[in-house]
């Protein structure tokens, strides 16, 4: 009997040196999408202790809850409470996304040049969906000088190529 081994999407990735900030890849972590059913938002919010509005990043009951589009949140981490399924659709997204951290005094300026939306208005912490040169991205601002950029697993090479130039 075989045992399947994991392969990181960043296994052979060479991250570019940047000026004014650094880029590193995050280890894979558990990501669960939480999509409340129509009319269930309040019940879900009560159960979870909160639900992020567009652009919001919340920390509730130790869960890192991030707005991820439409009426949708991503929970980063393992500790979702039980019994959510009556109020929302849960879907495992862990393997679909790769996260990168862009950190440093120059991080905002670098991203601001590349993203087609006004980064000056982005809260810290905050979340935004956008595109980076046609790559769909989830951008999280964790601190004023620290961003996480989440991209589809299949596109990590393109992302690294794009962030270089």
């Amino acid at each position: 009997m075989i045992r399947l081994k994991e392969t990181s999407a960043g296994a052979k990735l060479r991250l570019p040196p940047l000026t004014g900030c650094t880029l590193r890849m995050l280890p894979q972590m558990r990501i669960t999408s939480i999509a409340p059913y129509s009319g269930q938002a309040d019940a879900l919010r009560a159960r979870l202790g909160g639900f992020p509005a567009p652009g919001e990043v919340l920390k509730v009951q130790g869960i890192d809850l991030v707005w991820a589009g439409g009426d949708l949140a991503f929970a980063f981490g393992d500790d979702l409470p039980d019994g959510l399924g009556a109020h929302c659709a849960l879907s495992d997204q862990s393997d679909g996304w790769c996260g990168f951290v862009l950190q440093g005094a120059g991080a905002e300026a670098l991203l601001a040049r590349r993203l087609p939306f006004d980064l000056r208005n982005m809260a810290s912490p905050g979340s935004a969906r956008s595109v980076l040169d046609h790559l769909p991205v989830l951008v999280l601002r964790r601190a004023s000088d620290r961003f996480e950029i989440w991209v589809w697993r299949s596109m990590v090479q393109s992302f690294v190529q794009q962030i270089r130039t």
């Binding site: 567009p54 652009g55 439409g70 087609p116 939306f117 935004a128 969906r129 956008s130 595109v131």
Partner: peptide, 11 residues
């Protein structure tokens, strides 16, 4: 309605 004003290329 979610994201505010955005560039045409996102639509």
């Amino acid at each position: 309605p979610c994201c505010g004003w955005r560039d045409l290329r996102e639509f």
